[in-house]
Design a protein around this nucleic acid. Structure first.
Lengths: 168, 168
DNA sequence: TTAAACTTTCAAAACTTTTTGAAAGTTTAA
DNA sequence: TTAAACTTTCAAAAAGTTTTGAAAGTTTAA
């Protein structure tokens, strides 16, 4: 396979993966483009390379900055803004996990805590089934939350070394 | 909060979480409904309780079976089919992780392996940046894959006990 | 067999999300 | 100041996804 084709394929695959994980396709594609770009790119270049509109490019770039995945760079003497991606894969994974934890896991835990408090007749199967499921899911969610917290605070070394060894 | 309200809230939250994670809202809601139902439910009951159409209910139930999250049950002397959810939260998590690994992670690793093979001029920054990113992501993806494999084969005990303790 | 009871399918409709592009806003050099 | 260079916004359009419901298919009891 030739480099240009490989780049296209990479951008396409990253986009598809993103959309399967609830991150919009364009956002993932712009991220992919910046990941393989040796130098920072301008909005103009990104629009052109992915055939997307100015508005779309702008919004997507802002979102990516919000996720902590890319940064702006000013080049002295230039008016344009340049964008570049953090290329450290461990940072990327950490950043995404951190954001999703905050945006999704935390609100769910809040609801589950409330629902765990509901009281009822211990001889009512409706109540018992509800209570058991909610309590169990709450435990799992909190466990995942704590695990993430610990992992996000950790250094990358153990990760690259392979967590999986711990579970053998 | 009163039980009926709590049930509604649980179904709603589970649905929202599902849609944020690329599982469709109705599917997650039907799953939630079955999770808190003490006894198996018929298609008819599910349609009614969630105000969805027969076609939608049928499709969703089949999908949930495909994900290994619910099962059919025949009641002797009855024509209707009853559905119930596996209530073991660890099984649910395992099942979802297993499916997503198969459906999403595996295809990505396949593409990354191909892209890692692309050769080029070691003095070309375009090639170098591409190669470094692809190789790193490939390593991460394989690491995650192996970790999942190990976790999925493991018993639940260490999970409920808290993985995070291992990383302190 | 038959027909009632139930399940499945699928094209069209409803809904949701994403994208566009023109207009408004902002910044900067002169 | 001014105007050129650039960024941001947002309502409307396009694209994508989910849902509906009627029709077709299947199973079973008699």
């Amino acid at each position: 396979m030739e480099l240009e084709e490989a780049k296209r394929k990479f951008i396409e695959s990253w986009g598809k993966l993103g959309s399967e994980w609830g991150i919009n396709r364009t956002m993932a594609q712009v991220h992919a483009l910046l990941l393989i770009a040796p130098d920072p790119l301008t909005t103009e270049e990104i629009m052109e390379m992915l055939s997307i509109s100015r508005g779309n490019a702008n919004m997507t770039l802002r979102d990516l900055i919000g996720w902590g995945l890319i940064e702006k760079q000013h080049k002295q003497g230039e008016r344009k803004e340049y964008f570049f991606a953090d290329k450290d894969v461990w940072n990327i994974a950490k950043q995404v996990a951190k954001e999703r934890r905050k945006r999704e896991l935390e609100p769910v835990i809040k609801v589950l805590d409330e629902l765990s408090k509901v009281t009822g007749d211990a001889s009512d199967p409706e109540f018992n089934t509800f209570n058991k499921s909610v309590t169990d899911i709450n435990k799992l969610a909190k466990n995942v939350d704590k695990t993430l917290e610990t992992m996000l605070g950790a250094e990358e070394s153990w990760f690259w070394g392979g967590i999986f060894k711990l579970f053998k």
